[in-house]
Design a protein around this nucleic acid. Structure first.
Length: 487
RNA sequence: GGCCCCUUCAUCUAGCGGUUGAGGAUGCAGGAUUCUCAGUCCUGUCACACGGGUUCGAAUCCCGUAGGGGCUGCCA
């Protein structure tokens, strides 16, 4: 039975890198009918805040990553039989295990003060622990009285080997690891101990995480061994780098997965893109995947070893692709909040109308937010005409006025206000005026939308409705006339 | 500094000793679709970090060098 986990430290929002780790763990669990667990690593009380938990979980929820076991937060209840799922609530367990190691001589009390430790630095200025208290005699310990101490793990001699599903075999000489602290002076466990204890007690079978943990893993393996517990399988995937090739800083826009939601990206695209950042399908040359498809094709073996840069442009392409795969109704429902947020009143429009709007804009949306640009003229009056477009399309006002008057006349008498009859009307005008289609359509677009680009012309005209269309044509005619007088 | 990981087009990557005059995708450039933009479909552009080996033969294996990243906390 596969059991994987994501174990974030709730010290902020859901980072894009954490999302990648979560996704890989989640995909692996789902693929193997396993269990995916959310565990909060909040052993450092100072850095933890309940609102961070909320923010992080909102990110998971948005991405569609759900967990089978996890802690309570907000109005969500705790799930699972291996809880609690917050490390801050498992303190007694860690202490018990730490002292068990102490009793067995695998850990020892260290009374060194911070100042004592500070005095030991290597050539590069890094602190290291020379093992002062490693071999204190019982008398020496007794002499310390009730002086504060930490528990340090007694790193054994020899070699620790990681058999990693992604990295292959990685060997470490134990001599490079100091006797690390497992229990702080205040009784709180340190990350290394808590992780190992939890992974044992929660019966984690596969530890999939970023390769920033690769050099932590030997310590963990030593602890597993000291506790006589079987090793989980390890898989260290490469980190997500920013567009400059550096570690994706928390302060960068986009580090928070919800930034992408705000920018008009759909979660389907984010998940697809992040999965592709270091993983390829065995179905060669395939890049578009829905979440169910990712589950179907995912495999740890296909995860690469080299770090990947985040490429916003490719994400945007994928985003457009996913948007185009949405049903018009689904797209409509995602668009409405964005329209509302930008002050467009959608309540006066029918569901059918809004669906049509979604439909005619669908293939032109790299992001959902683009809808604002593409559809503002449906909700607001045209207050200005694009100057460059005006210079180009309305070069000879007198001529355009004749065109528009003819079109207006034609449209006034149109029987059914829909795409085909509108097109027919324009075709007739073109024939009568002996001009090309574009010569009529493009200037008209400017009159109706104020822009030179937008949705298909007859589609948008149909949606605009007869009254508005005729009004805007008249308004344009009036404007052109006034312009002519001036010149 | 020490230890560990990484290095194929600008970017994400395929490739796991010969079938590769290195394939796909994004981007970029050009063409088609003559209502714009977008989309779609074509075409083009662009890479095996460097230096040594091993081998009949290397992007693929080995060793160096350089560059990038990670860890080296009573953070996780």
């Amino acid at each position: 039975m596969v059991r994987t986990r994501i174990a974030p430290s709730p010290s902020g929002f859901l980072h894009i890198g954490t999302a990648k780790t979560a996704l890989y763990n989640w995909l692996f669990a789902r693929k193997n009918n396993g269990t995916f667990i959310l565990r909060l690593e909040d052993t450092d009380a100072e850095r933890t805040d309940e609102q961070f938990v909320q923010g992080m979980c909102e990110g998971f929820k948005w991405l569609g990553i759900d967990w089978d076991e996890g802690p309570a937060f907000g109005d969500v209840l705790e799930k699972g039989n291996y809880g609690p799922y917050r490390q801050s609530q498992r303190k007694e367990l860690y202490q018990r295990i730490a002292y068990q190691l102490f009793e067995e001589g695998k850990a020892y009390k260290c009374f060194c003060s911070k100042e004592t430790l500070e005095s030991y630095k290597d050539e590069a200025g890094n602190l290291y622990y020379p093992g002062f208290c490693r071999n204190l005699t019982p008398e020496q310990i007794r002499e310390k009285g009730d002086a504060p101490y930490v528990l340090r793990f007694r790193v054994p001699e020899g070699e620790t080997v990681i058999e990693d599903l992604i990295q292959g075999t990685v060997r470490f000489n134990n001599s490079q690891f100091d006797d690390f602290v497992i229990l702080r002076a205040n009784g709180d466990p340190v990350f290394h101990l808590a992780v190992v204890v939890d992974d044992i007690y929660m019966k984690i079978t596969h530890v999939i995480r970023g390769d920033d943990h690769l050099t932590n893993t030997p310590r963990h393996i030593m602890l597993f061994n000291a506790l006589g517990a079987p090793l989980p399988k390890h898989a260290h995937h490469p980190l997500v780098l920013d567009e400059q090739g550096r570690k994706y800083s928390k302060r960068l826009h986009g580090a928070n997965v919800l930034d992408w939601r705000d920018d008009g990206y759909v979660p389907e695209a984010i998940v697809n893109y992040v999965a592709l950042l270091g993983w390829t399908s065995e179905e060669e040359n395939r890049e578009f995947f829905t979440l169910p498809e990712l589950i179907q094709y995912f495999s740890i073996e296909r995860i690469g070893k080299s770090p990947a840069r985040f490429d916003r442009r490719k994400l945007e392409w994928l985003n457009g692709l996913h948007i185009r795969h949405l049903s018009p109704e689904d797209l409509r429902d995602r668009l409405i909040p964005i329209l509302e947020k930008n002050g467009f009143d959608t309540s006066t429009k029918s569901k059918e109308w809004l669906t049509k709007l979604a439909q005619i804009c669908q293939e032109k949306l790299p992001t959902l937010n683009r809808i604002v640009f593409l559809s503002d003229f449906f909700f607001n009056e045209v207050k200005a005409y694009e100057p460059e477009a005006e210079a180009k399309l309305w070069k000879s006002p007198q001529q355009i006025i004749t065109y528009f008057e003819k079109i207006r006349d034609k449209l006034t008498h149109i029987e059914t206000w829909e795409h085909d009859s509108l097109k027919k009307a324009y075709e007739e005008c073109c024939a009568e005026l002996n001009v090309k289609f574009g010569a009529l359509v493009n200037p008209s677009r400017l009159a109706l939308t104020g822009k030179s680009v937008g949705p298909g012309f007859f589609e948008l005209t149909e949606l605009l409705g007869k009254e508005v269309t005729l009004n805007r044509l008249s308004k344009a005619i009036k404007y052109l006339k006034s312009k002519e007088v001036k010149s």
